[in-house]
């Protein structure tokens, strides 16, 4: 290593398989009393069961049926989202941005993988990939086509590179033909990808099942 990497540590112990490395580290940390195994399970359980894209979907569905809530969400997303019970780690400072016929929003973090955990959970692999981080900011239209979204040049893309602690939630457009749908049924149309801007909300046709 070069001399300016003075924080680098010894890697002679590192097992070639990261799964083994993680297992060895967990064993060391729990036996040393640095980590309570129950605390680890609580965190894994929280993001497996309680915190995920259903949270964001409920926020979006509310914004579709309640214009007052939508305005609040656009003005002060942190408070409006907390009002529905979603707050905490990686959602401390939220901003909501809305897609329209003329504007499409897409979120990336080019420097790491900043993502609104409170409303979307842990980011998917593609969001964390080098390809997405490198390309979304430079060629968002090509990237969106890989997700199956072909935007006309008349639609402006607003690309949010969320490298500070502000976290972004995209409000997708409400699909046509859902005027009489309940908030709960609408929430089922709101996908994680739509709330990152990598897709649209499902339509009554694509959602499958009944509403």
């Amino acid at each position: 290593m070069s001399h300016d990497h003075d924080h680098d540590h010894d890697h002679s112990h590192v097992p070639p398989d990261p799964a083994l490395r993680v297992q060895a580290l967990e064993s060391l940390l729990t036996r040393k009393g640095l980590v309570d195994p129950g605390a680890l399970e609580a965190i894994i359980e929280t993001y497996s069961n309680d915190v995920g894209p259903r949270n964001g979907a409920r926020v979006v569905a509310r914004s579709w049926v309640d214009p007052g809530y939508r305005q609040w969400l656009l003005d002060d997303a942190t408070a409006a989202i907390a009002h529905l019970g979603y707050q905490g780690r990686q959602g401390e400072h939220m901003v909501a941005v809305e897609n329209t016929d003329r504007v499409h929003n897409l979120v990336v973090c080019t420097l790491c993988s900043c993502y609104p955990w409170t409303v979307l959970g842990i980011p998917p692999t593609w969001y964390k990939s080098e390809a997405y981080r490198a390309r979304a900011v430079r060629e968002p239209r090509a990237v969106l086509r890989e997700f199956g979204l072909d935007l006309d040049d008349s639609v402006d893309i607003r690309l949010w590179d969320s490298t500070a602690e502000i976290r972004y939630l995209v409000i997708p457009q409400r699909p046509a033909g859902t005027d009489d749908w309940s908030e709960e049924a609408l929430a089922d149309l709101v996908t994680r990808d739509a709330m990152v801007g990598a897709g649209r909300a499902l339509t009554p046709d694509t959602a499958g099942g009944d509403a």
Binding site: E26, E41, I44, I122
Partner: peptide
């Protein structure tokens, strides 16, 4: 192990 690395 992804989850375990995140949780640790």
């Amino acid at each position: 192990w992804y989850n375990r690395a995140m949780a640790m």
